[in-house]
Write a protein that binds this DNA or RNA. Structure first.
Length: 280
DNA sequence: AGTGAGGCCTGAAAGC
DNA sequence: TGCTTTCAGGCCTCAC
C-alpha cells in the first residue's frame, strides 16, 4: 500500500510526536505479521527514548537510545494512528500494536498483515537483510540520469517493472510508477536498454516531481491509507493515469470521438496505466 | 540472471 | 437481496 510519499507523510507525523519520546508501554495483540514480531520486542523497546526517526525506501526506522532501532514496514494495508497520550483508546479491529509514550500513543493497524515490525542493532542496520539490497533513494543526489542509464544497460525488462525494483530505486510503488512514466512521456512497455540519456533525464525529473507533489498533498488515499491523524491525503485527485482506464488523460487534446483514452495493461503481474498517445 | 506465477491476508467492489 | 469472484499502495519464494 503505502508508497514513498505515504511513508514519508507518516514518518513526518511521527517525527512531530515521537521524537524524544519515552516509551513506557508496548502492547502487542497479534505478532503474526508478514514476519512474526520478535518475542522480546516489547522488552527491547519499553523504557527507552526514541532519539531519531527516518525513512529508508518504504521502511520507517525508529532509533532508540538503547543501541537498537525499530524497522517498520506497512505492507499493503498498514496504517499508523497517532493519538494524544492522555486519551483512553479502545483497540479497534486489526489494531496489532500499541506503543504508548509520554508524548503520544502510536497504534499500528493492518488488515492484511503484510506489514513487518522488527528491531536491529543500530550499528548493524545498513547490512540488515531488509536493507542490504535496497537501491538509492529518489531524492538522493546520486539519483541521476547516468545512474539510471547504468542500471538499465542491457536490461531487457519493461521500464515500468524496473521502476518497482527496490534494488534500483527505493520507494516507488505501483501508483507512482505509472504516474512518473506518464509525466516523463515514456511508455511503460519500453525496455530498459532502449531508454536514452534524454529519456532518463526526463524520467529522473518526473520521478522526483511526482513524488514531491504527492508528499506535498499528503499522499494518495485509496482504500486503506489515511494520514496518522485520520485525515486523507489528496494526491489521488491529481492522478493522471492511475485508475483512469477509459478516461482521457489531462494532456489529451484528442477529439472525444477519436477513442484516445488511458489504457490498462498488466506488467509483471501489476496493473499499469498509460496514455498510448502521450507516452512513447 | 531474470522472469512469471503463486502465496501471504482481509475486505471492498463488481459480477451474477 | 445475497452469494461468488476479482482486485488491491508490497514483497518473498519457487519453479522454469
Amino acid at each position: 500500500m503505502p508508497e514513498l510519499p505515504e511513508v514519508e507523510t507518516i514518518k513526518e507525523a511521527l517525527k512531530k510526536v515521537a521524537d524524544g519520546a519515552f516509551v513506557y508501554s508496548v502492547d502487542i495483540y497479534n505478532r503474526n505479521l508478514r514476519e512474526n514480531i520478535p518475542d522480546n520486542f516489547e522488552h527491547i523497546v519499553r523504557n527507552h527514548i526514541i532519539i531519531n526517526i527516518y525513512r529508508r525506501a518504504k521502511y520507517i526506522v525508529l532509533v532508540l537510545d538503547s543501541g537498537f532501532s525499530l524497522i517498520w514496514h506497512l505492507g499493503m494495508s498498514g496504517r499508523i494512528k497517532i493519538l494524544d497520550s492522555n486519551v483512553s483508546y479502545i483497540p479497534e479491529k486489526h489494531d496489532h500494536v500499541i506503543i504508548k509514550t509520554d508524548k503520544s500513543v502510536i497504534v499500528y493497524n493492518d488488515a492484511r498483515r503484510f506489514g513487518l515490525l522488527t528491531y536491529v542493532k543500530t550499528t548493524d542496520i545498513a547490512s540488515h537483510r531488509l536493507f542490504a539490497h535496497i537501491g538509492i533513494d529518489p531524492f538522493s543526489e546520486d539519483f541521476s540520469p547516468s545512474y539510471l542509464i547504468q542500471m538499465f544497460e542491457n536490461k531487457k525488462t519493461f521500464v515500468k517493472v524496473a521502476l518497482l525494483d527496490q534494488s534500483i530505486i527505493a520507494g516507488i510503488g505501483n501508483i507512482y510508477a505509472s504516474e512518473a512514466l506518464y509525466e516523463a512521456k515514456i511508455s511503460p512497455l519500453r525496455l530498459c536498454k532502449d531508454i536514452s540519456f534524454n529519456d532518463a533525464e526526463r524520467l529522473v525529473t518526473a520521478i522526483k516531481n511526482t513524488l514531491s507533489r504527492a508528499i506535498a498533498a499528503g499522499g494518495s488515499t485509496l482504500k486503506d491509507y489515511k494520514k496518522p491523524d485520520g485525515s486523507m491525503g489528496y494526491f489521488q485527485f491529481q492522478h493522471c493515469v492511475y485508475g483512469k482506464e477509459g478516461k482521457q488523460c489531462p494532456a489529451c487534446t484528442c477529439d472525444r470521438m477519436s477513442g484516445c483514452k488511458v489504457k490498462k495493461i498488466v506488467l509483471g503481474g501489476r496493473s499499469t496505466f498509460y496514455c498510448p498517445r502521450i507516452q512513447k
